[in-house]
Design a binder for these strands. Structure first.
Lengths: 205, 205
DNA sequence: CACGGTGATGAGACCGAGTCTCATAAACTG
DNA sequence: CAGTTTATGAGACTCGGTCTCATCACCGTG
């Protein structure tokens, strides 16, 4: 693939992450990023659709998640299939060597609304993909959407915890834990006791 | 408030919606919008943060939803409180006279990724606000987030149905219906409920 | 009725994001 | 080695968005 200096996209992403962390997102120009990567401004836009996308380019997330959900065991319940998808992410995407990068990336994104906006869009898109994948397993549409929303909630919690460097657990384990907590929290959402019942045990937090 | 020609913001929004519908979002410049509204480009940016925001300016949504959730009956379950919030939206925001505008706005947004991105961000922000409002009722954090996610799913379904002009039901009624469907779909999502107590009575719905 | 204050607007310079076109040089093909 | 392909560089160009300064309408007060 790469002919001249290899990994142009990777170099651009690294340069962007460094500059955004050093000087902030909007005091960094695309020209700055390109030059630190040893490239021209126009080359930047050949690799990324826009300035924001340089932090969201690797979109293996979507594919891995979808295929893992589709190929989950036939008898698995919707949320089980979603759990298999999160397992796959832990295996193929959110691996230990990738973790430091992800943590820095996360901090940069949280520091600028433009990047948060892009992340919001990616999240919506990912949720829709998950819902379609679950529906393709024969699950009714609405149930598939519910499973996808709960799965995304668990994913966000997992991502947040995994980005905490004091937590050394594997992504997949955190995900299973988070999904269990979400699942356990669901019944308390509709009806039943009006206020927190003193007689019910608190969950294992 | 308005001194010269009144309703500058409204005129800008109307002009933008017309032009976006006529010629598309990215073939319409901010200058075009301002001129159709009888204003200058710089005035546009005094009324709206950026070009996208002209379709998202009226953000009464957030406030209404939050206050309605907070002031819901003390004994109401989390999803009940969310339902009260949706009722309030039907009362104060998504009213019949506002409907035609909303439908056109929705079509324009769905036609351009930049606008979808902004809407995604608004959705995430709204979900977070709902979760905080529910949590302020004394609901544990995770349960509040689950309620907010399910509520947002119901809201999106409601908004979609309400934007179908062949559906003449009131927003609040559609919302109650959608919430009921979401709630009914939830149990089918997990196969083997770890904590769902079979001996406990279902709530009054 | 004149006068000054306030606030919304207009005009236009300015910067950077993003597009587009053309030229160039490296890599593959044979 | 000749011809093609492909990633890149260079730079002009439009438009979004910021900023500054001038202007004009309204309002109050004396």
């Amino acid at each position: 693939m790469a002919r001249w200096e290899p990994n142009a996209s990777q170099r651009l992403t690294d340069a962007a992450l460094e500059l955004f962390a050093e000087r902030g997102y909007d005091t960094t120009t695309v020209l700055d990023i390109a030059q630190r990567a040893g490239l021209a401004k126009s080359t930047f836009f050949r690799h990324f659709q826009d300035k924001r996308e340089v932090l969201f380019g690797e979109n293996a997330l979507n594919d891995r998640l979808v295929t893992a959900i589709e190929t989950a065991p036939a008898g698995a319940a919707p949320l089980e299939a979603v759990a298999c998808g999160l397992d796959a992410l832990g295996r193929d995407v959110f691996t230990p060597p990738y973790r430091a990068f992800t943590v820095r990336r996360r901090a940069v994104i949280e520091a600028h609304p433009d990047l948060q906006e892009r992340e919001a869009l990616k999240g919506v898109s990912l949720t829709a993909s998950m819902a379609r994948a679950v529906a393709r397993r024969g699950v009714p549409d609405l149930a598939a959407r519910v499973a996808a929303e709960l799965g995304m909630l668990a994913f966000r919690i997992t991502y947040e915890r995994w980005s905490d460097l004091s937590n050394t657990d594997a992504f997949g384990d955190i995900a299973r834990q988070a999904l269990g907590e979400v699942q356990a929290a669901v019944p308390s959402v509709y009806g039943t006791p009006p206020l927190r019942p003193a007689h019910r045990r608190a969950d294992r937090r």
